[in-house]
Design a protein around this nucleic acid. Structure first.
Lengths: 331, 331
DNA sequence: GCACGGCGTGATAACGTTTACATTCCTCCC
DNA sequence: GGGAGGAATGTAAACGTTATCACGCCGTGC
């Protein structure tokens, strides 16, 4: 790999002149510029982002980190695409990591981010009071939280109106005549989850339905817990007639449990999920869901991150996007 | 961010000694070691991977690149997870990029890989004679091809027995009584695609069925082209009674076209796809597919890459994994 | 008593950039 | 003709590591 040194030698100028030609900025006389450009071409020069990053204070690495629970989850994959599209449009590359909802993995990758001197990081924090994320945010690293947010530290946030989404979903079930509505939720220390549960409770209250505590079950956002909790609900003396599941993977788990017991959807059990799936339309039955604009969440998060990199001092912003209830045939 | 300098100053030793303590290797007298370790803790020292990478020749960046067409494609997402799992197990981080089956994007990201001095790259080349990939491979950068391979340059490859998979799929359709079997393929310059087509042809030949050329349609691996080509086949004077689609996205497109025309699967049209989907079981109808061990493909690719990084000179290896025909209710 | 070996440690070059500052060389004007 | 001023270019430091070499010190053996 040719370096500035070699190019400079070939063009018979100093490395400073080569650097000037590369960064277009300063004035170089046309003759030397031409000579340098020839040398650059001849040697097929490629700048080293590593050297550049080491030299520069920060903010010009053209590299950002993205830490998500699992890239195989279509919701996060869509966010990732949103981030990537905006990053690519700005010549940024992406360091992508899966935390698996595991604090140790998250911590490892946050360390990598620091060690790689990335310009910033986009992530959904593990929960409300994610120490590792709070630390790195307070150390001055630009952070944008997506989907979930932190409670003590102010950062830029792009989130969805989860309360509204859940409220709409549950109201829809109530309008269909359901009164006993099961809630399958995730970890209760996650902001997203709490808002969705509040939406559930408020929708019941608005309809004058008294909540049954045993219809609420908390899992861990993963498919298996959706399956297990659905079975728990089905085993109640008086099981619910409808299910509201707060994320996509647990919804798939719930469907598996229902299919296994040969229950008909929506006749025996109506189901509304949170997060759309690319295949929701082709599912059996096509699934009613609260659709989140995940690509847009990712895109805006990256935009916010770029703005913060440019202007580190600016006050943190929260962008709140609206979800949409997509009614299909599972309700 | 504390540097070696600062740690050395605080421990009243030279940076060389601090470096020795960090790299455990050489002998340091216990007293100094303790002093240095205290300083490291006090200052919360984190090594800079950037500086380290600049200094070292290559092979110790603990960073590899992964360039895939689209992370939203579950097949590539599963490969990505396989790569990531093996990378994490070896303390490697992953630079992930989506090429969108677009040579310019691919080229941009390959440049980033060089510029970031990654230790190696895992990717499915755009096609057989992907110049950009051949260039970087010949420049000495460790490359492992997954899914697809190159024709001129020998690299490590992890692939699936595509011929066998396609042969099994089409033989299965024939066994179900079909003689007019449509083939929806992707770009014909991709090795994977050619092998699957060969499997299709060989299965027909083995059954003594004479192929009909107009039943073969080539697309670009994307959902939309699956939809369009299915419609073309349906509009033939004598349409096929079964469809073999060579990848997952085009299969979803094909299903959409069939559903739109209210055709019953498998009665009006049987369908076999390539690549399993996490939701294939819950689809309407549950889809018969050739399942590829994508996670394993990714994992082994990363292992191969690590071995090559350790031993750059070793002759290129090809790992071939077996696919599996999963028979569900679409046939 | 002195040379020698070996161990612990320090000084320093190098990796490839960017950039502040120094230098050279014109041009122009008094 | 000589100095000022400015444009073009060069020099060198700095970023944070790793690795090579040199140095000083102590114990050992003759």
């Amino acid at each position: 790999m040719a370096s500035l040194q070699e190019v400079a030698a070939r063009a018979k100028v100093s490395i400073a002149t080569v650097s000037r030609v590369l960064n277009k900025s300063e004035k170089v006389v046309p003759a030397t510029r031409a000579a340098v450009e020839k040398a650059l071409r001849d040697l097929d020069y490629r700048p080293s982002r590593v050297a550049r990053r080491l030299r520069m204070n920060s903010g010009r690495a053209n590299l950002v980190g993205l830490i998500i629970p699992d890239i195989q989850n279509p919701f996060f994959a869509e966010i990732a695409r949103g981030v990537e599209d905006a990053a690519y449009a700005n010549q940024y590359a992406l360091l992508l990591c899966n935390s698996d909802e595991n604090l140790d993995k998250e911590r490892f990758y946050l360390d990598v981010m620091r060690a790689e001197s990335v310009d910033g990081v986009v992530l959904p924090p593990f929960d409300d009071r994610d120490d590792a994320v709070m630390d790195i945010a307070q150390s001055g690293m630009p952070i944008v939280c997506v989907d979930r947010s932190l409670v003590r530290v102010k950062t830029d946030v792009v989130e969805v109106d989860n309360h509204q989404g859940a409220f709409d979903a549950v109201s829809h079930l109530i309008a269909r005549g359901h009164e006993h509505i099961g809630l399958i939720e995730g970890r209760t220390t996650v902001s997203t989850n709490r808002e969705r549960r509040r939406g559930y409770a408020d929708a019941l209250a608005a309809a004058g339905i008294s909540p049954r505590k045993e219809l609420i079950r908390a899992g861990d956002f993963k498919q298996e817990s959706g399956r297990v909790l659905t079975n728990e609900l089905l085993d109640l003396r008086k099981p619910p007639t409808a299910l509201f599941v707060v994320n996509n993977l647990m919804t798939v788990g719930a469907l598996a449990a229902l299919h296994q017991r040969k229950l008909r959807i929506p006749q025996d059990m109506a189901v509304v999920g949170f997060d759309d799936l690319p295949w929701a339309e082709a599912l059996d039955p096509p699934l009613t869901v609260v659709r989140q604009p995940a690509h847009e969440v990712g895109r805006q998060a990256m935009e916010l991150l770029l703005k913060r990199i440019m202007e580190p001092g600016r006050p943190p912003l929260t962008v709140r996007l609206q979800p949409e209830l997509v009614i299909r045939r599972s309700t």
